[in-house]
Structures are given as C-alpha cells and as structure tokens.
C-alpha cells in the first residue's frame, strides 16, 4: 500500500476491499439479496437465474465488497470451488421454504466446509435463512438445526432470517460480516 492509499484509508476516502463468495442452491435468492444491498439507483428490477456467476460490488460504512454471485444450479455448482481461495468471507443463502431440498443445501455446505481451501481457514460465514415471508418457511433456528450449524466450531458464523424482496434482515447480517472482517484484519 502506498502512502497515499494509507492516507486515504485513514481519512475514510478509500475503503478496504474484500472478496466475498455468495453461495447457496438455485432459487434461494442470492442475486436478489445482493441486488438489495446495492445503492437503490444501481438495483435492477428483473432478476433472472444466474448463469455461471456474476461479479457485483457494494459498499458498507467501512468496506468495499466484491461479491462473486455464483449460480446455484446443480450443473454450475462445481464452479464454486475454483473461487474458494480468493474468498475472504462467505454468504450462504438458504430458501427456508424449500424443506425438501434442505438436505441438498446441507450436502453442499458440508462439501464446502470440507474443501481443502476452506477447511483450515477461520473464514467468516454469514447464513441467510431467506424467504422468511413465505407461509411454509421454517424459522432460522430450525434451518440452523437442519444444517447442523452447531458443528461449525472453527469458523465464526451467524444466521439471519431475511426477506430479500423487502430487504428485511439483510443489513443486520452484513453488519456482522463487516465486524468479522475487520476483526480478522487487525
């Protein structure tokens, strides 16, 4: 970092950059969540299923996030692991109303946690128990039970109930993530 950059950092002109991976099954609401975190003039109206992945950026009070919004479709899930090395934090999104595929979400989470590029790192994971507004959605406590989150002992994690359509619960989660990343850097 050059002297100018440092100065800019102290003055709060330039924010620290972090790379975040946004993972989760298809249709869980990853793109919708990230879209909602962007400034309202940069949000898109129509959200279509992601093909491959897309790179999105948004800022919080002290960080500048670069998000890899991965496609959750089965045939693209093998792409995820190629970005594990670069990721400094993970956002894992779950469709709380999709009880049938909770096992699939757990399977993918377990595969992620056991991957050599993730396994021994204290990388923070933020879970969004999304689609809380739907009638047959299960609670975030139930989601964390179904995914056995209590077994994650060596990484900081947090689960937040969210409704990405209205934007509820998102800020709370991102604030936690920001704190974790800053604690990690200092």
């Amino acid at each position: 970092m050059g002297l100018f950059d440092k100065l800019a950092g102290w003055l709060g002109l330039k924010k620290k950059e972090v790379h975040v991976l946004c993972l989760g099954l298809d249709n869980s609401g990853k793109t919708t969540i990230i879209n909602k975190l962007k400034p309202s003039n940069a949000q898109t109206q129509d959200i279509v299923p992601t093909i491959g992945f897309s790179i999105e950026k948004f800022k919080t009070s002290s960080l500048s996030f670069t998000v890899f919004d991965m496609s959750g479709q089965g045939r693209y899930r093998n792409l995820w692991e190629h970005y594990y090395k670069e990721g400094q934090a993970i956002i894992f999104v779950i469709d709380s109303s999709d009880k049938l595929r909770m096992v699939v979400a757990k399977e993918e989470l377990d595969t992620l946690l056991n991957h050599p590029d993730i396994k021994h790192r204290r990388i923070p994971i933020l879970f969004f128990a999304n689609k809380m507004d739907l009638r047959d959605a299960v609670s975030s406590v139930k989601v964390s039970q179904l995914l056995s989150l209590e077994n994650i002992k060596d990484k900081p994690w947090q689960i937040c109930a969210s409704d990405a359509l209205k934007g509820e619960g998102l800020q709370e989660g991102v604030d936690w993530l920001q704190d974790q990343i800053q604690a990690m850097k200092t």
Binding site: G74, L100, R101, V103, V104, E107, E108, T111
Partner: peptide, 25 residues
C-alpha cells in the same frame, strides 16, 4: 421433481411416500 433432476420417489405398501435426492457428486 421440482428443481431436482435426479429424484427418486417410492411408495410403500403401508401407504408411505419416500423421496430421495441423488447426490450431485
């Protein structure tokens, strides 16, 4: 079945319904 391509659905003699999803890997 729904969004999962490789789903196995079975009915049982006692009237049960078993749904299994084939692991991606």
């Amino acid at each position: 079945y729904g969004r999962e391509d490789n789903t196995l659905i079975m009915t049982t003699k006692g009237g049960g319904l078993i749904i299994k999803i084939l692991k991606r890997t």
